[in-house]
Design a protein around this nucleic acid. Sequence first.
DNA 1: ATTATATAAATGTATAGACATATAATGTGA
DNA 2: TCACATTATATGTCTATACATTTATATAAT
Lengths: 150, 150
Amino acid sequence: MVKIEEAIQQKEFKDPFNKAVVNLLYTHSYLVTSQNALFKPYGISPEQYNVLRILRGQNGVPTTVSSIQERMLNKMSNASRLVEKLKVKGLVKRSECPNDRRQVDVLITEKGLELLAELQIRVEKGNIDFVHLNLDEVDKLNELLDKLRG
Amino acid sequence: MVKIEEAIQQKEFKDPFNKAVVNLLYTHSYLVTSQNALFKPYGISPEQYNVLRILRGQNGVPTTVSSIQERMLNKMSNASRLVEKLKVKGLVKRSECPNDRRQVDVLITEKGLELLAELQIRVEKGNIDFVHLNLDEVDKLNELLDKLRG
DNA sequence: ATTATATAAATGTATAGACATATAATGTGA
DNA sequence: TCACATTATATGTCTATACATTTATATAAT
Protein backbone atom coordinates (compact mmCIF):
# COMPACT_ATOMS: atom_id res chain seq x y z
CA MET A 1 0.00 0.00 0.00
CA VAL A 2 1.42 3.36 -1.07
CA LYS A 3 0.43 6.13 1.32
CA ILE A 4 -0.42 9.47 -0.23
CA GLU A 5 2.65 11.07 1.41
CA GLU A 6 4.90 8.71 -0.56
CA ALA A 7 2.93 8.94 -3.78
CA ILE A 8 3.45 12.68 -4.12
CA GLN A 9 6.62 12.95 -2.00
CA GLN A 10 5.06 15.27 0.55
CA LYS A 11 6.26 14.73 4.11
CA GLU A 12 3.17 15.82 5.98
CA PHE A 13 -0.15 17.62 5.70
CA LYS A 14 -1.58 20.51 7.67
CA ASP A 15 -4.32 18.23 9.02
CA PRO A 16 -6.19 15.06 7.97
CA PHE A 17 -8.90 17.12 6.23
CA ASN A 18 -6.42 18.77 3.90
CA LYS A 19 -4.79 15.40 3.44
CA ALA A 20 -8.13 13.89 2.45
CA VAL A 21 -8.67 16.53 -0.24
CA VAL A 22 -5.25 15.82 -1.74
CA ASN A 23 -5.89 12.10 -1.42
CA LEU A 24 -9.16 12.49 -3.34
CA LEU A 25 -7.49 14.47 -6.10
CA TYR A 26 -4.63 11.99 -6.38
CA THR A 27 -6.86 8.90 -6.27
CA HIS A 28 -9.15 10.41 -8.88
CA SER A 29 -6.25 11.00 -11.24
CA TYR A 30 -5.09 7.44 -10.65
CA LEU A 31 -8.57 6.17 -11.50
CA VAL A 32 -8.94 8.27 -14.62
CA THR A 33 -5.60 7.06 -15.97
CA SER A 34 -6.79 3.49 -15.61
CA GLN A 35 -10.16 4.30 -17.20
CA ASN A 36 -8.59 6.03 -20.17
CA ALA A 37 -6.53 2.94 -20.98
CA LEU A 38 -9.68 0.85 -20.94
CA PHE A 39 -11.71 3.22 -23.13
CA LYS A 40 -9.03 4.07 -25.68
CA PRO A 41 -9.52 1.02 -27.95
CA TYR A 42 -13.25 1.73 -28.23
CA GLY A 43 -12.91 5.26 -29.54
CA ILE A 44 -15.09 6.93 -26.92
CA SER A 45 -14.22 8.75 -23.71
CA PRO A 46 -15.43 7.89 -20.19
CA GLU A 47 -17.63 11.00 -20.33
CA GLN A 48 -19.25 9.88 -23.57
CA TYR A 49 -19.78 6.43 -22.05
CA ASN A 50 -21.55 8.08 -19.15
CA VAL A 51 -23.92 9.88 -21.53
CA LEU A 52 -24.71 6.60 -23.30
CA ARG A 53 -25.48 4.99 -19.94
CA ILE A 54 -27.82 7.82 -19.01
CA LEU A 55 -29.65 7.46 -22.33
CA ARG A 56 -30.02 3.71 -22.01
CA GLY A 57 -31.30 4.18 -18.45
CA GLN A 58 -34.28 6.00 -19.94
CA ASN A 59 -35.44 2.79 -21.63
CA GLY A 60 -36.25 4.26 -25.00
CA VAL A 61 -37.77 7.48 -23.68
CA PRO A 62 -36.08 10.41 -25.45
CA THR A 63 -33.98 12.56 -23.14
CA THR A 64 -33.33 16.27 -23.46
CA VAL A 65 -29.84 17.73 -23.34
CA SER A 66 -30.53 19.49 -20.04
CA SER A 67 -31.85 16.29 -18.50
CA ILE A 68 -28.63 14.51 -19.50
CA GLN A 69 -26.64 17.36 -18.01
CA GLU A 70 -28.43 17.01 -14.67
CA ARG A 71 -27.58 13.33 -14.43
CA MET A 72 -23.95 13.63 -15.41
CA LEU A 73 -21.21 12.92 -12.89
CA ASN A 74 -19.70 16.28 -13.65
CA LYS A 75 -22.40 18.95 -13.59
CA MET A 76 -20.10 21.40 -15.35
CA SER A 77 -19.50 19.23 -18.38
CA ASN A 78 -21.00 20.20 -21.70
CA ALA A 79 -23.73 17.72 -22.62
CA SER A 80 -24.48 19.55 -25.86
CA ARG A 81 -20.99 18.92 -27.23
CA LEU A 82 -20.79 15.37 -25.96
CA VAL A 83 -24.09 14.55 -27.66
CA GLU A 84 -22.78 16.07 -30.90
CA LYS A 85 -19.69 13.84 -30.76
CA LEU A 86 -21.78 10.75 -30.11
CA LYS A 87 -24.04 11.68 -33.01
CA VAL A 88 -21.09 11.94 -35.40
CA LYS A 89 -20.15 8.39 -34.37
CA GLY A 90 -23.73 7.18 -34.97
CA LEU A 91 -24.21 6.25 -31.31
CA VAL A 92 -27.13 8.62 -30.66
CA LYS A 93 -29.89 10.32 -32.63
CA ARG A 94 -31.06 13.86 -32.10
CA SER A 95 -34.50 15.17 -33.01
CA GLU A 96 -36.41 18.35 -32.40
CA CYS A 97 -38.87 18.05 -29.54
CA PRO A 98 -42.39 18.52 -31.03
CA ASN A 99 -44.07 20.26 -28.08
CA ASP A 100 -41.14 22.58 -27.32
CA ARG A 101 -38.95 23.42 -30.25
CA ARG A 102 -36.20 24.75 -28.01
CA GLN A 103 -35.59 21.28 -26.66
CA VAL A 104 -33.80 18.43 -28.38
CA ASP A 105 -34.73 14.78 -27.89
CA VAL A 106 -31.73 12.48 -27.70
CA LEU A 107 -32.00 8.70 -28.19
CA ILE A 108 -29.35 6.01 -28.10
CA THR A 109 -29.11 4.01 -31.36
CA GLU A 110 -28.79 0.25 -31.82
CA LYS A 111 -25.12 0.80 -32.52
CA GLY A 112 -24.84 2.78 -29.30
CA LEU A 113 -26.54 0.05 -27.31
CA GLU A 114 -24.20 -2.56 -28.75
CA LEU A 115 -21.07 -0.58 -27.96
CA LEU A 116 -22.39 0.16 -24.48
CA ALA A 117 -23.08 -3.51 -23.77
CA GLU A 118 -19.59 -4.52 -24.84
CA LEU A 119 -17.92 -1.72 -22.93
CA GLN A 120 -19.96 -2.20 -19.79
CA ILE A 121 -18.62 -5.70 -19.21
CA ARG A 122 -15.07 -4.43 -19.29
CA VAL A 123 -15.76 -1.29 -17.29
CA GLU A 124 -17.49 -3.22 -14.51
CA LYS A 125 -14.72 -5.78 -14.39
CA GLY A 126 -12.13 -2.99 -14.47
CA ASN A 127 -13.78 -1.19 -11.58
CA ILE A 128 -13.78 -4.29 -9.40
CA ASP A 129 -10.09 -4.83 -10.17
CA PHE A 130 -9.32 -1.19 -9.49
CA VAL A 131 -10.77 -1.03 -6.00
CA HIS A 132 -8.43 -2.96 -3.72
CA LEU A 133 -10.83 -3.12 -0.80
CA ASN A 134 -12.98 -5.84 0.71
CA LEU A 135 -16.77 -5.58 0.88
CA ASP A 136 -16.90 -4.02 4.33
CA GLU A 137 -14.27 -1.48 3.40
CA VAL A 138 -15.89 -0.46 0.13
CA ASP A 139 -19.26 -0.01 1.86
CA LYS A 140 -17.54 2.18 4.44
CA LEU A 141 -15.85 4.20 1.69
CA ASN A 142 -19.18 4.83 -0.03
CA GLU A 143 -20.69 5.91 3.26
CA LEU A 144 -17.80 8.28 4.00
CA LEU A 145 -17.87 9.86 0.55
CA ASP A 146 -21.62 10.46 0.80
CA LYS A 147 -21.16 11.98 4.24
CA LEU A 148 -18.13 14.04 3.17
CA ARG A 149 -20.30 15.95 0.70
CA GLY A 150 -22.53 16.93 3.56
CA MET B 1 -26.59 13.68 3.46
CA VAL B 2 -27.17 13.13 -0.24
CA LYS B 3 -26.41 9.56 -1.28
CA ILE B 4 -24.73 9.10 -4.62
CA GLU B 5 -27.83 7.36 -6.02
CA GLU B 6 -29.83 10.55 -5.45
CA ALA B 7 -27.13 12.89 -6.62
CA ILE B 8 -26.99 11.41 -10.10
CA GLN B 9 -30.50 9.92 -10.16
CA GLN B 10 -29.32 6.36 -10.61
CA LYS B 11 -31.42 3.74 -8.83
CA GLU B 12 -28.78 1.14 -8.14
CA PHE B 13 -25.27 0.00 -8.95
CA LYS B 14 -23.96 -3.32 -10.17
CA ASP B 15 -22.02 -3.75 -6.92
CA PRO B 16 -20.44 -1.55 -4.23
CA PHE B 17 -17.11 -1.48 -6.08
CA ASN B 18 -18.65 0.04 -9.18
CA LYS B 19 -20.60 2.37 -6.92
CA ALA B 20 -17.36 3.48 -5.24
CA VAL B 21 -15.80 4.38 -8.59
CA VAL B 22 -18.79 6.51 -9.52
CA ASN B 23 -18.82 8.00 -6.04
CA LEU B 24 -15.15 8.96 -6.42
CA LEU B 25 -15.78 10.58 -9.80
CA TYR B 26 -18.79 12.49 -8.51
CA THR B 27 -17.16 13.60 -5.27
CA HIS B 28 -14.09 14.74 -7.18
CA SER B 29 -16.18 16.89 -9.49
CA TYR B 30 -17.98 18.33 -6.47
CA LEU B 31 -14.60 19.17 -4.90
CA VAL B 32 -13.16 20.73 -8.02
CA THR B 33 -16.21 22.98 -8.44
CA SER B 34 -15.67 24.27 -4.92
CA GLN B 35 -11.94 24.74 -5.48
CA ASN B 36 -12.43 26.66 -8.71
CA ALA B 37 -14.66 29.18 -6.97
CA LEU B 38 -11.96 29.72 -4.36
CA PHE B 39 -9.12 30.13 -6.87
CA LYS B 40 -10.94 32.27 -9.43
CA PRO B 41 -10.34 35.67 -7.75
CA TYR B 42 -6.60 35.00 -7.54
CA GLY B 43 -6.06 34.39 -11.25
CA ILE B 44 -4.41 31.02 -10.92
CA SER B 45 -5.76 27.48 -11.21
CA PRO B 46 -5.60 24.72 -8.58
CA GLU B 47 -2.99 22.96 -10.75
CA GLN B 48 -0.81 26.06 -10.87
CA TYR B 49 -1.19 26.40 -7.09
CA ASN B 50 0.00 22.84 -6.74
CA VAL B 51 3.14 23.64 -8.77
CA LEU B 52 3.86 26.67 -6.57
CA ARG B 53 3.51 24.49 -3.48
CA ILE B 54 5.94 21.94 -4.88
CA LEU B 55 8.45 24.69 -5.61
CA ARG B 56 8.19 26.25 -2.17
CA GLY B 57 8.59 22.78 -0.64
CA GLN B 58 12.09 22.71 -2.12
CA ASN B 59 13.12 25.59 0.15
CA GLY B 60 14.96 27.61 -2.44
CA VAL B 61 16.59 24.65 -4.18
CA PRO B 62 15.83 24.93 -7.92
CA THR B 63 13.56 22.20 -9.22
CA THR B 64 13.58 20.71 -12.72
CA VAL B 65 10.42 20.40 -14.79
CA SER B 66 10.49 16.60 -14.62
CA SER B 67 10.91 16.69 -10.86
CA ILE B 68 7.83 18.91 -10.60
CA GLN B 69 5.96 16.50 -12.86
CA GLU B 70 6.79 13.55 -10.58
CA ARG B 71 5.35 15.31 -7.56
CA MET B 72 2.18 16.52 -9.18
CA LEU B 73 -1.17 15.13 -8.15
CA ASN B 74 -1.93 14.33 -11.74
CA LYS B 75 1.03 12.55 -13.28
CA MET B 76 -0.38 13.19 -16.76
CA SER B 77 -0.49 16.93 -16.43
CA ASN B 78 1.93 19.06 -18.37
CA ALA B 79 4.41 20.68 -16.00
CA SER B 80 6.22 22.43 -18.84
CA ARG B 81 3.13 24.40 -19.82
CA LEU B 82 2.08 25.14 -16.25
CA VAL B 83 5.55 26.52 -15.48
CA GLU B 84 5.34 28.72 -18.59
CA LYS B 85 2.01 30.17 -17.40
CA LEU B 86 3.38 30.83 -13.93
CA LYS B 87 6.42 32.52 -15.48
CA VAL B 88 4.23 34.87 -17.54
CA LYS B 89 2.54 35.88 -14.28
CA GLY B 90 5.92 36.48 -12.62
CA LEU B 91 5.34 33.78 -10.03
CA VAL B 92 8.31 31.61 -11.02
CA LYS B 93 11.71 32.04 -12.68
CA ARG B 94 13.21 29.63 -15.16
CA SER B 95 16.94 29.25 -15.81
CA GLU B 96 19.11 26.85 -17.75
CA CYS B 97 20.66 24.20 -15.55
CA PRO B 98 24.45 24.71 -15.72
CA ASN B 99 25.55 21.07 -15.39
CA ASP B 100 22.95 19.67 -17.79
CA ARG B 101 21.70 22.07 -20.42
CA ARG B 102 18.70 19.87 -21.23
CA GLN B 103 17.27 20.59 -17.83
CA VAL B 104 15.59 23.76 -16.65
CA ASP B 105 15.81 25.04 -13.10
CA VAL B 106 12.56 26.47 -11.80
CA LEU B 107 12.37 28.72 -8.75
CA ILE B 108 9.42 30.40 -7.08
CA THR B 109 9.71 34.19 -6.91
CA GLU B 110 8.94 36.54 -4.00
CA LYS B 111 5.68 37.38 -5.71
CA GLY B 112 4.93 33.68 -6.01
CA LEU B 113 5.65 33.10 -2.33
CA GLU B 114 3.39 35.98 -1.36
CA LEU B 115 0.48 34.77 -3.48
CA LEU B 116 0.98 31.24 -2.19
CA ALA B 117 0.92 32.35 1.44
CA GLU B 118 -2.29 34.29 0.94
CA LEU B 119 -3.96 31.51 -1.00
CA GLN B 120 -2.87 28.77 1.34
CA ILE B 121 -4.80 30.23 4.26
CA ARG B 122 -8.00 30.16 2.24
CA VAL B 123 -7.37 26.78 0.65
CA GLU B 124 -6.69 25.11 3.99
CA LYS B 125 -9.76 26.71 5.54
CA GLY B 126 -11.79 25.75 2.46
CA ASN B 127 -10.68 22.13 2.66
CA ILE B 128 -11.67 21.83 6.30
CA ASP B 129 -15.09 23.30 5.49
CA PHE B 130 -15.47 21.02 2.48
CA VAL B 131 -14.93 17.73 4.31
CA HIS B 132 -18.02 17.10 6.41
CA LEU B 133 -16.46 14.35 8.48
CA ASN B 134 -15.19 14.08 12.05
CA LEU B 135 -11.56 13.26 12.84
CA ASP B 136 -12.06 9.49 13.08
CA GLU B 137 -13.97 9.44 9.85
CA VAL B 138 -11.47 11.47 7.88
CA ASP B 139 -8.61 9.28 9.12
CA LYS B 140 -10.57 6.25 8.01
CA LEU B 141 -11.21 7.82 4.61
CA ASN B 142 -7.50 8.49 4.11
CA GLU B 143 -6.72 4.92 5.07
CA LEU B 144 -9.32 3.52 2.66
CA LEU B 145 -8.18 5.69 -0.25
CA ASP B 146 -4.55 4.63 0.29
CA LYS B 147 -5.62 0.99 0.45
CA LEU B 148 -7.95 1.31 -2.56
CA ARG B 149 -5.00 2.17 -4.79
CA GLY B 150 -3.38 -1.11 -3.80
C1' DA C 1 35.49 10.48 -32.92
C1' DT C 2 31.24 8.92 -34.72
C1' DT C 3 26.99 6.78 -34.36
C1' DA C 4 23.31 5.23 -31.67
C1' DT C 5 20.52 5.56 -27.69
C1' DA C 6 18.51 7.79 -23.88
C1' DT C 7 16.80 11.71 -21.51
C1' DA C 8 14.69 16.61 -20.64
C1' DA C 9 11.82 19.82 -22.16
C1' DA C 10 8.87 21.81 -25.50
C1' DT C 11 5.29 21.54 -28.84
C1' DG C 12 1.19 19.80 -31.61
C1' DT C 13 -3.39 18.25 -31.40
C1' DA C 14 -7.53 16.27 -29.59
C1' DT C 15 -10.99 15.97 -25.72
C1' DA C 16 -13.14 17.81 -21.79
C1' DG C 17 -14.17 21.23 -18.13
C1' DA C 18 -15.31 26.11 -16.85
C1' DC C 19 -17.70 29.85 -17.81
C1' DA C 20 -19.55 33.72 -20.60
C1' DT C 21 -22.36 34.84 -24.30
C1' DA C 22 -25.43 34.14 -28.32
C1' DT C 23 -29.56 32.38 -30.54
C1' DA C 24 -33.98 30.77 -30.70
C1' DA C 25 -38.32 29.57 -28.74
C1' DT C 26 -41.55 30.03 -25.07
C1' DG C 27 -44.10 32.23 -21.41
C1' DT C 28 -45.96 36.38 -19.10
C1' DG C 29 -47.67 40.85 -17.91
C1' DA C 30 -49.15 45.42 -19.44
C1' DT D 1 -50.33 42.35 -29.28
C1' DC D 2 -45.92 43.82 -27.81
C1' DA D 3 -42.20 44.23 -24.80
C1' DC D 4 -39.69 41.63 -21.51
C1' DA D 5 -38.03 38.00 -19.03
C1' DT D 6 -37.09 33.01 -19.03
C1' DT D 7 -35.56 28.68 -20.76
C1' DA D 8 -33.06 25.28 -23.93
C1' DT D 9 -29.40 24.67 -26.59
C1' DA D 10 -25.38 26.01 -29.01
C1' DT D 11 -21.10 28.37 -29.45
C1' DG D 12 -16.70 30.93 -28.20
C1' DT D 13 -12.64 30.91 -25.55
C1' DC D 14 -9.46 29.62 -22.06
C1' DT D 15 -7.29 26.04 -19.14
C1' DA D 16 -5.95 21.42 -18.38
C1' DT D 17 -5.43 16.49 -19.50
C1' DA D 18 -3.80 12.86 -22.69
C1' DC D 19 -0.70 11.40 -25.64
C1' DA D 20 2.40 11.60 -29.74
C1' DT D 21 6.20 13.86 -31.69
C1' DT D 22 10.12 17.07 -32.00
C1' DT D 23 14.34 19.29 -30.55
C1' DA D 24 18.36 19.62 -27.99
C1' DT D 25 21.63 17.67 -25.13
C1' DA D 26 23.97 14.03 -22.87
C1' DT D 27 25.62 9.26 -22.47
C1' DA D 28 27.15 4.84 -24.24
C1' DA D 29 28.95 1.80 -27.70
C1' DT D 30 31.91 0.87 -31.41
